[in-house]
């Protein structure tokens, strides 16, 4: 469902991704681990279609279509969701208003009927319940004055409501205490299904105690240098990223 081939990306003229390869199937959970500055957020932003990143080579196919050709909102319509490492505040726009607009926009993209406010509320309730996340935050302006944990939880709530086909989670675990971490990972686990894939990006092995991936890839300096099963995480935890860098095996996931 996602195929990244030899992806090269520059930021301000400086190469950040240097030939990245990754293939994901339907319903799979992949994890990308890597040290700070290795290009994890760059990858997630490029997948979502952020302007500031210059793609100098390679291709990305998502559900049979050229992803890089699409506008950010079209990618969302196709079922791509990015949980941001740093979610953005939208003053004056309530979470409810935001998600109603978003869900109707993606429904429209998919040729589905728009939902009215009452139908929306019903959908929100069902999906939030399924993901075991409280809806109360939707009454407030999007992310405004939210704590770090609240922001991450809110990203998970949005994900639950928008029901993406591929969710890219950029460091959803950073800055969370153990309770918040549990809420976030419970939401992800509740949403795992044969139709939904996850690309979980993290710096820490800790998250993988809660979300158990099918595959792990190690990203160092813009390339995936090692791929393996979930046991790779433990190895990394024990030996650190330096160990991988020394034992590079340049695998295409």
């Amino acid at each position: 469902m996602l195929e990244i081939k030899d992806l090269h990306v520059n930021v301000n003229g400086k190469p950040i991704l240097k030939g990245l390869n990754l293939t994901m199937g339907e319903g799979e959970v992949h994890c990308i681990m890597g040290p700070n500055g290795s290009g994890k957020s760059t990858l997630s932003q490029v997948l979502a279609g952020r302007d500031a990143y210059e793609i100098t080579g390679g291709s990305v196919t998502f559900r049979g279509k050229d992803l890089l050709e699409q506008e950010p909102h079209e990618r969302a319509g196709e079922g791509l969701f990015l949980a941001f490492q740093y979610p953005v505040e939208i003053p004056g726009v309530s979470g409810n208003q935001f998600l109603r607009a978003a869900l109707n926009a993606v429904r429209q993209y998919r040729g589905e009927d728009e939902l009215d406010a009452a139908q929306m509320m019903k959908v929100f309730r069902e999906r939030a319940k399924q993901a075991k996340i409280d809806l109360a935050s939707l009454k407030r302006s999007v992310n405004e004055g939210f704590s770090g944990g609240e922001k991450k939880r809110n990203e998970m709530l949005q994900m639950a409501i928008l029901e993406p086909r591929l969710a890219v989670l950029d460091e959803v675990d950073s800055g969370l205490d153990i309770d918040a971490l549990k809420i976030v990972s419970d939401a992800v686990n509740a949403m795992r299904s044969a139709q939904r894939s996850f690309l979980v990006i993290t710096h820490y092995q800790r998250l993988l105690n809660h979300i158990v991936p099918d595959h792990i890839h190690v990203l160092v300096d813009g390339q995936i240098v090692k791929s393996g099963g979930k046991e790779l995480a433990l190895e990394l935890e024990e030996k650190g990223y330096a160990w991988v860098e020394e034992h590079t095996n340049t695998v295409a996931g």
């Binding site: 941001f84 978003a102 926009a105």
Partner: peptide
């Protein structure tokens, strides 16, 4: 802000208007 809203499915004009 614009990118965040667009990522959730709104096109540029609707994102600005929101």
């Amino acid at each position: 802000q614009l990118f965040y809203v667009q990522q959730r499915g709104l096109d540029l004009e609707n994102a600005v208007s929101l």
